[in-house]
């Protein structure tokens, strides 16, 4: 299927990955970052891209979510989170900018999210998290795509939708405007944005989806091992989609934020264009076998997944 291969090779992830990170057990880290106490008394370092661009964390959600958030996710106090209630007129301008971020990152791949879907599927039932700042501090290639208006612009986002069972969240559509130029910074900011989402929501289990060729695969792989629930999803716009789940405890978040991605090791490399292999793996999963995503081939947007049979 050459057409399919070309199509999915450029598709960014519209994938949920929800996590239940609470901060317990996080370890202190290495040099270069501030260590801040969380509400749970666990240190978390603030992170590199966020610090270097002077970014602020933001949330789009209805007000009652505040009671369910960790007291100090990644060291940020709750009142440091810039909060946008989707049911209030004052949030409109920021939501417009968020739609622009989605347009710039997912739009070229035919995965732009309709504004009503933002509202119905994420903002009302769940939340969006991300980092924002002044465009004047953004890299030049990002500034060129945005107005120089001095407003707070979201640079990255991650969507989170609650799932049926308590403390389980689907986390998806991780993206950032740093993707407009190839490099590793967009992967790092993806990791930091996902980590913020997980640390804030503290789920016991997170689900995620991503295309096997997704530029965000390396970001997700920082949280490996991931239990792969499906390798081939005909119901999705792009059938070559990976559905996975993991339990994002504080140690895993800490590791994702600060340890380099292991780009070598065990596992078979998944070819996103090999439909036969993807459907064969799907058949084995449906027959009861367990598949784990254990890493990625590189720490860039070009990464491919490494998987092995057996529990994560």
């Amino acid at each position: 299927m050459p057409g399919l291969a070309r199509e999915i090779s450029v598709v960014p992830s519209r994938a949920p990955c929800r996590s239940a990170a609470n901060a317990r057990g996080a370890r202190a880290e290495r040099s270069g970052c501030a260590i801040l106490p969380t509400g749970l008394g666990v240190p978390f370092r603030r992170v590199s891209i966020v610090e270097s661009l002077s970014l602020e964390p933001w949330v789009v959600a209805t007000p009652r979510l505040v009671h369910r958030l960790a007291a100090r996710p990644l060291g940020f106090r709750r009142d440091e989170l810039r909060w946008f209630d989707p049911m209030r007129l004052s949030s409109t301008a920021f939501l417009d900018r968020l739609e622009r971020l989605d347009e710039l990152t997912f739009g070229p791949h035919g995965l732009r999210m309709p504004r009503w879907a933002f509202y119905d599927c994420v903002e009302l039932p769940g939340a969006l998290f991300g980092y924002a700042g002044s465009t004047r501090r953004f890299p030049e290639h990002v500034r060129g795509a945005l107005p120089d208006d001095g407003e707070l612009w979201p640079l990255s986002m991650c969507m989170a939708t609650p799932m049926v069972r308590p403390d389980e969240w689907l986390v998806f559509s991780i993206s950032s405007l740093l993707e407009l130029e190839p490099g590793t910074d967009s992967v790092r900011l993806g990791v930091e944005t996902l980590a913020l989402t997980l640390a804030a929501l503290g789920p016991k289990r997170a689900f995620g989806t991503m295309q096997w060729s997704s530029p965000s695969l390396a970001a997700h792989a920082h949280f490996a091992p991931l239990a792969v629930r499906a390798t081939w999803v005909p119901a999705h716009t792009h059938a070559g989609t990976c559905v996975f789940a993991f339990e994002p405890d504080a140690g895993r978040i800490e590791h994702a934020l600060h340890a380099p991605l292991s780009t070598a090791g065990e596992g078979v490399v998944v070819d996103p264009e090999d439909q036969l292999a993807l459907t064969a793996m799907q058949g084995r999963i449906e027959a009861g076998e367990k598949l784990s995503l254990v890493g990625a081939t590189e720490a860039t947007r070009e990464a491919k997944a490494r998987v092995r049979w057996g529990r994560a």
Binding site: R14, A15, P16, L111, P114, A117, C121, T161, M163, A235
Partner: peptide, 18 residues
């Protein structure tokens, strides 16, 4: 004018809810 894209069906409904 509000048909649901396939991926919204999956990510936004089938997987998290019902």
């Amino acid at each position: 004018g509000m048909p649901m894209p396939r991926w919204v069906f999956f990510d936004g409904a089938e997987l998290p809810g019902g």
